[in-house]
Simulated assay, not measured.
Amino acid sequence: MNQQSSLNHPIVEESFKIIDREIGQHNLSLLEYQIARRVIHSTADFEFIDLLKFSPNSITIGVDALKNQTPIITDVTMVKQGIVNLVAKTFNNSIITAIENVTYTLPGKTRTETGLLECYQQYPQGIYVIGNAPTALLALCQQITQTKLKPSLIIGVPVGFVSVLESKKSLEQIDIPQIRVDGRKGGSSVAAAIINALIILAWENNS
């Protein structure tokens, strides 16, 4: 049994086989597809096969960062809850949640936005996983542009209608290793699925 199958529940493996059959041919690389398949498993939404976008070498960079125990910064608690068990079974990276890391709220900014900016000051090279708060993603992109301190990887997949498209466009325009979802779709479950897929790839590669 390989490392990946040992980390996946048998029902997940069976679901993957169904997804493989229904998708058939696609244009993703092997590694990109493994991430997309887990997102589709978590959402039952096959549109993600086309909506997921990967910057060059983003998967390899993310895998290396995880293996080096780089801290993982999430925007909200739901993303953290979706990854904490797998992180504990593998590389035991620190997980910091922006909304729980707020010592004060900046004027005109949300608690998540403020917390994420504080996290960026503390962990500029962290892995940032944003599934819920587009304003936090916008603020992070603005700070990166100003300071030039680059996170190891940004997973930018906020969901919704207000500032969502703008935040993803802002991420697309900066030179940072990134995995994002085009359009309005995304969410905490998508963000957790992406980082979990990267963790499994890193664990499998670590064997």
Rank of each mutant, 00 (worst) to 15 (best):
I59N: 03
I59V: 11
T60E: 15
T60A: 12
T60L: 14
I61M: 08
I61Q: 15
I61R: 13
I61H: 07
I61D: 11
G62C: 14
G62H: 11
G62E: 11
G62D: 13
V63Y: 10
V63G: 05
V63D: 09
V63L: 13
D64C: 07
A65T: 08
A65P: 07
L66H: 02
L66R: 03
K67Y: 03
K67I: 11
N68R: 15
N68M: 12
N68H: 13
N68V: 09
Q69N: 14
Q69A: 12
Q69I: 09
T70R: 09
T70G: 10
T70P: 07
P71C: 11
P71F: 08
P71G: 13
I72L: 12
I72C: 09
I73G: 03
T74P: 08
D75G: 10
D75K: 10
D75R: 12
D75V: 10
D75I: 14
D75F: 12
V76Y: 06
V76N: 03
V76K: 10
V76M: 14
T77M: 12
M78L: 15
V79I: 15
V79D: 00
V79N: 03
K80H: 14
K80L: 09
K80E: 09
K80A: 06
K80M: 15
K80V: 07
Q81I: 06
G82A: 14
G82E: 12
G82K: 13
G82P: 00
I83Q: 07
I83T: 05
I83H: 10
V84F: 09
V84R: 15
V84G: 01
N85V: 05
N85T: 12
L86D: 05
L86Y: 06
L86W: 07
V87N: 09
V87D: 03
V87L: 08
V87G: 00
A88W: 02
A88S: 09
A88F: 02
K89Y: 01
K89N: 01
K89E: 04
T90H: 01
T90A: 01
T90I: 00
F91C: 01
F91E: 01
F91R: 02
F91Y: 09
N92L: 04
N93V: 06
N93D: 04
N93M: 09
N93R: 08
N93P: 02
S94L: 13
S94P: 05
S94M: 13
I95S: 05
I95P: 00
I95V: 15
I95G: 02
I96H: 07
T97K: 08
T97A: 12
A98V: 08
A98M: 08
A98F: 02
A98E: 04
I99G: 03
I99R: 07
I99C: 08
E100T: 12
E100G: 06
E100P: 00
N101P: 00
N101R: 07
N101Y: 14
V102M: 03
V102K: 03
V102S: 03
T103Y: 05
T103M: 05
T103R: 11
T103D: 14
T103W: 04
Y104T: 07
